[in-house]
Amino acid sequence: MISVRRIIVVLGVAFTAYLAARGLWWTAPVPQPLVVIAALSLYLVTTWLCIFWEPRRAAPMAADRPSTAPLTGGSRTALPSWAGALALACALIVPSAIAVAVGTDSRTAPFATWYLGGIGALMTIVMVRRRPWIAWSGIAALAIASMAWMGPLNALALGLVGSLVWVSATQLMLRSMDRAARDTDQLAQLQRAASAWQASQSGRQRERRIQVQRALAVAGPVLTRTVASGGSLDEEERTQARLAEGRLRDEMRGPRLLDDAVHAELERARRRGTNVTVLDEGGLDGLDEATLAIIRTQLAETLRAARSDRLYIRTSPHERVAVTVVGRSNAGPGLSDEDAVDLWREIDHPGAA
């Protein structure tokens, strides 16, 4: 299967091979051909090493996307320091070696100026492999050597400008790709958050439906009796209506605190005339049923012993306290409600220090 990486690798190899082949197309005598061949060999080995080198992975990860590695990879496929140093050494050695080997009269000939594009292509590869400082250092070395051997105007006219443009454009492209990758990651996070929110809303809707069904099961008979009698209820029916109203509020405000034992104690307290408020304000999310059962058992025991006129039962987001039970009673004339607290119980999370 043809991948983006294979296409880029083939193009890189073909282009660098073409540039190197220009160095062998001699149209004039070369005083030192062995030096030329050695410089070309150094260039090809270094360039293809930078193209084909990949890090050795201990174990493949499913999250990796190797289709564009190593030429478009991130830090995990960055060129190693030793390979970068070899590329920089090539940029320092090859231009001067070629200039010396071809002689003074041929330094501006096409077969002697190939290194302007060749080193530019090598530094472009180094830039793609996430070594920008080495790439720009190599371009600087190329500029100094080419201008020294053939003059600034000739160097700029014969290919130095193109090499500068390649490396600059590559760096800008990489920055754009990195920015696009960051934007894609942020979008993916937003999509996950939106999916989680949608799932939580669906869960809450299901929970509300369950609570409504429970509420109808509790209040339905009382409402039916009230409608049938035209609102004329005896004392026992009024008590049942008040208990149904309290149970309905409990189911709506604090369903995680309720089981049969807690329901029984809340009903017993209301029959005594106690005003009971149950509020789930967070802190019980994520607890398993066994842990909730322990908390409910302690809550039922607390309610069984309570004799307050008003009871406030609240869950707590505190890391230690699961539920707080506060009881207040009429302490007599002249005393404020702050002085009438006759019950304070904190039910800890099971296992909390």
Rank of each mutant, 00 (worst) to 15 (best):
I119L: 13
V100Q: 10
P66H: 04
S316A: 09
E301L: 10
Y115A: 00
A63R: 08
L174I: 14
A39S: 08
I294Y: 00
D185I: 07
M147N: 12
L40N: 08
L311D: 02
L257N: 04
D250Y: 07
A63L: 10
G12D: 10
A293G: 10
D259H: 07
R131K: 08
L216M: 15
S232K: 11
V341D: 14
A293R: 12
L142C: 03
T291I: 12
R179M: 07
L284T: 09
M61S: 14
L248N: 03
V36T: 14
Q205G: 04
L153I: 13
S146I: 05
V4F: 08
A17E: 04
G84T: 09
R328M: 14
A340I: 02
T184D: 13
S96Q: 13
A352L: 10
R314N: 15
I98T: 12
A135Y: 01
I294M: 05
L160C: 04
E235N: 13
S137Y: 03
L24A: 14
G12L: 12
A169R: 05
I119A: 07
M127T: 03
W133Q: 10
G151C: 04
R65G: 01
M150Y: 00
P221H: 05
F52P: 00
L79P: 00
R208C: 04
R22A: 11
A140I: 06
V278T: 13
Q201N: 08
A155Q: 06
V321A: 06
W25C: 02
A300Q: 02
Q240C: 05
T108P: 01
A69D: 15
A261D: 15
A148W: 14
R214V: 07
D105C: 00
E319Q: 06
V212N: 07
P317L: 03
D337S: 12
D234R: 07
A228W: 09
V161P: 02
L299H: 05
C90D: 14
C50A: 15
R129I: 00
S336W: 11
G220D: 09
L86E: 06
L86P: 03
L160A: 03
R345G: 00
T226R: 09
S232W: 11
S232G: 00
G246Y: 00
W136M: 13
W166F: 15
R5D: 11
V262F: 10
R270S: 11
L257G: 05
G73W: 00
L34T: 11
L233N: 06
W149V: 01
S96K: 09
L190I: 01
V4D: 09
A17V: 06
D178N: 06
A219Y: 10
T46W: 03
H263C: 12
E251D: 11
R328G: 02
I294L: 12
H349N: 07
N330V: 01
A62Y: 02
I144N: 00
Q201Y: 01
A21C: 01
N154H: 12
A322Y: 09
L122I: 06
V321Q: 07
W53D: 02
S137Q: 06
I294P: 00
R242S: 09
R129S: 00
A244Q: 03
A121L: 09
G120H: 10
T77R: 01
A199F: 05
T226L: 15
T16Q: 14
L311R: 02
T302M: 01
G138F: 01
A228D: 11
L34M: 14
A140Q: 03
P66Y: 02
